[in-house]
Simulated assay, not measured.
Amino acid sequence: MRLLIEANNIVIKRLSALDSTAVCASVAQYFSPRKNIAMAINAPLHETIEVDQYRARVGLCQGLSLGAFETTSGRMIAFYINRIETGGKTNGSAVTSDTDYFKEKYEWVGPISRLSEHAKENIFRDTGVEKPFEIDFGAVDPKYSKHGISTTLSIMSEDVAKENGCDSIASFVTSSYTLGSLKKLGYSIASRFDLSYYVDRKTGLRPFVNATPPHNIVGSLYKLL
């Protein structure tokens, strides 16, 4: 791990595949990043954790993710899984094929994957973007939820994106709170859905009608760098 910043008894470091154990433990302990949406369609929590832990391990391989740690204990209290996309596909990973695997394994994965794809559809249309950087997902220990850690990780993710020659940064968010936070950082909204009314384009059903605030609002945001 490479130290990036240290302040207020919190250290921010660049993560690698060597941090997969700590990140996967955080996914399970703090919350599975898609837990609230998954709960709306009665997906078992242990299944959502399995899927998101896998996504975390894949994302860590690119060495672009960030983690926040307590300076005294060394305990991870937050992470952002970041990756670079090229031509709409994740560079250097097999996320697409493995998503198909999980779609077959767990019925609930399909609706969530289609929702994410719908939200990201044509996100950079007419912008001239060639090398987008994506904040895939993140988690913060609830004890630190009001400490500005998520904002710090978002800003530092922009720095990582610029260091790697990316011309934009994007994120699919699953709450109105996160959507509002990124807007304050200069992000533009590419898509926004109220899950109470969202219709799955494949089935014609409303799979997330039971989603509750603030997780009933999802969407994709981007920022040109």
Rank of each mutant, 00 (worst) to 15 (best):
R55G: 10
E163A: 13
S116H: 09
T178P: 00
M39Y: 10
D136W: 06
A68V: 01
A211L: 09
F193V: 06
G63N: 11
S220L: 00
S188Y: 04
E134T: 13
E158K: 08
I41L: 14
C61F: 03
E121L: 03
T72L: 13
T90R: 00
L18R: 13
R14I: 10
I189V: 15
G148P: 03
D200K: 05
S168K: 02
S168W: 07
S32Q: 12
I169D: 03
F133G: 03
M156I: 09
R57I: 15
D126K: 10
L179M: 15
N82C: 12
S32F: 05
S154T: 10
G110E: 15
H147P: 00
K146E: 13
V140K: 05
L179R: 02
A22M: 10
V140D: 03
Y30N: 04
K146N: 15
Y54I: 07
D19Q: 11
E6G: 01
A211H: 05
E85P: 00
A25W: 01
I149S: 05
F124R: 01
C166T: 10
T72Y: 12
P213S: 14
N42T: 07
R201T: 11
V11K: 02
S191H: 07
R206F: 02
Y80T: 02
S191T: 14
C166N: 11
G128S: 04
